[in-house]
Nucleic acid binder design. Structure first.
Lengths: 338, 338
DNA sequence: AGCGTGGCGGAAAGCGCTTTCCAGCCCAGC
DNA sequence: GCTGGGCTGGAAAGCGCTTTCCGCCACGCT
């Protein structure tokens, strides 16, 4: 079973060169090695099937080839799209991505960051965060500090954290534009299914939407809070129905909530869009196959993941950088004029 | 910026004990340490914010806390569900999962395995594979051999590989049961949208479905091959329509293909289930929100991921083990009696 | 009293690699 | 002819941890 690993020393010995030379040929490229020795080393490495021990390299170099990726839930299309972008860029750079999931547990993010620090991950992409618990927040801040002070880089998607690089979607502007377009369809009364109030994303989208309605001279919407998930949308929609508002159009602050809401409406016999129009935000890939097709604000999710990965991998800068990506309103069958 | 890492030696010195003692307290638990020293060490470690360097530990112990997970496409709900199961178990065991995506590129799996070997990953879960290219196949086999001979464990989901542990869904039985139930609805003529013929999954499901039809005394279905993806299903459905078969019921060998097919049918004005019934396989989570709800064979995807992770993490056995999970036919709105 | 014995702390030898530093060597320049 | 400098190869000192081995001490037994 446990055959011993082929080591650099072995390659060096078989090739009749020193450890240093073998190392120089196979990894560190700063110095020149004569063609003859170089070939000998490469040959023997090939023959022996040598693969450098990444732990040893990390130890010697004091930096690993690991990139962390922290998400709440990898089955959520929003996160898996971002994950796809991050892995794409990381793998292209010859790095390895380690996936951590928080399950939306408050302290988990800090724990994961600590683990990542133990592994000397060279960078981390934090996708999705929250601003609840003050203590957890402080803990996270100190972990971020510890991580970066070791030379690691951190980028956040959508939610800025203490001077880290960030990729921020145009939540406010997107929601505002959406509101205006919906108003242009003739809707007068709106409802918003919002996520937890402590989530920056929720706040921005809600504020943007309200601003858009105000632009159109319309009244503020009925706002119903729910969890930031499909089931949260489902529950919020039921609550909305129970309230018997006159809203003819519903904006769910993200697509998964909108999907849940549509399911709830369907079950209750409320037709979309005939009885009520509905729109979401994000344009997750699964939207392609919903019926009716959901109106939304399109975000280039995978590209956002790529951007975040690039921010975190290209040298980095001293000042926190921000990459803004715009949302694009996409009206589909779930909204109709009123 | 680059503050130096708090090291074990530092903790030991501050606590006034030897390196060995500090190590024993904080990590290796075989030996006893007196309460007094133990407390001193724990205190100082706490105060200094000590986090063991995982690379150094991996090097010294010759085994890391990394678990590999290889999937084709993390945005595919099938894979992300499995990924969720794997990460759940791995994180509970205090391990870290590194995510590799192949993008269905032939040689990529072997490459990833090699990288994982370099990192001394203690185990790998291979979800989704294929049996095409003979050369890539051999390369993969030798990587698996290299990986396991170093003491690493490998488990596959759904597709067995050279004596590795495997979690196999009841593809054949599930498809067969599905065929019988569909036949019981009164359908006589069937079409199957199959994936690439070299995929074991495809073959098994197709064979099972045919067997089920035979059980019911029905003729063999029209079979159309396509890619194992949503777009593959879309294209295959178009091809099916072009053939103008008399099929009243379509079986797509997986759900994403079925979703694509439904999109194609919808676009062509073919109503589901009025004009044609359709069923898939897997029961991916997104199915909850499709209209009409898709009939399928339910597989406990997340649990399969958990099982695979457990297989690979619990000591392991000498003989390859197989965990079978049964599929359960779930008839929904996309199939109706004929 | 003499001598195992068991328990616990510490010294030190690695784990596999990188990288500094030094030793040759060859060539150019005075 | 000798010195200085540019190259290339090798010896060896770590990187931060684990773990073996040894030594010391306190006991308990004959």
């Amino acid at each position: 079973m446990s055959a011993r690993q082929v080591t650099l020393a072995e390659v060096a010995r078989q090739a009749g060169v020193s450890l240093a030379t073998a190392s120089r040929v196979l990894n560190g490229s700063t110095r020149q090695v004569s063609d003859e020795l170089r070939d000998r080393v490469l040959m023997t490495a090939e023959v022996l099937g040598y693969v450098a021990n990444a732990s040893a390299q990390a130890l010697a170099r004091n930096s690993s080839s690991l990139v962390g990726l922290v998400v709440h839930d990898i089955t959520d299309p929003y996160f898996s799209s971002i994950a796809a972008g991050v892995t794409k860029v990381a793998e292209a750079a010859g790095l390895v991505v380690v996936l951590g999931t928080t399950g939306r547990t408050p302290g988990r993010e800090a724990e994961l960051l600590s683990t990542l620090r133990a592994h000397r991950a060279r960078a981390v992409v934090l996708a999705g965060s929250r601003t609840t618990d003050r203590k957890a927040q402080a803990r996270l801040a100190s972990e971020i500090e510890a991580f970066t002070s070791l030379g690691g880089r951190i980028a956040c998607v959508s939610q800025a954290k203490l001077g880290t690089d960030t990729v921020v979607p145009g939540n406010r502007a997107g929601a505002r534009a959406l509101a205006r377009e919906l108003a242009a369809l003739g809707h007068k009364r709106f409802a918003v299914l919002a996520g937890p109030a402590d989530l920056v994303v929720t706040r921005d989208r809600l504020a943007g939407f309200k601003a858009g309605l105000a632009d159109a001279g319309l009244a503020a919407p009925t706002v119903i809070d729910g969890a930031f998930t499909r089931d949260g949308g489902y529950d919020a929609a039921l609550e909305l129905l129970a309230k018997k508002t006159k809203a003819t159009c519903v904006f769910a602050v993200n697509d998964v909530m909108a999907m849940g809401a549509m399911a709830a409406l369907r079950e209750r016999g409320v037709r979309v869009p005939e009885d009520i129009s509905i729109a979401g935000f994000d344009d997750i890939p699964t939207l392609r196959d919903t019926v009716p097709a959901l109106s939304t604000v399109r975000l280039p999710l995978e590209e956002m993941g790529e951007q975040a990965a690039r921010l975190v991998l290209d040298g980095g800068s001293d000042v926190p950088r921000t990459v803004r990506v715009a949302g694009e309103v996409v009206l589909r069958a779930s909204t109709q004029s009123n």
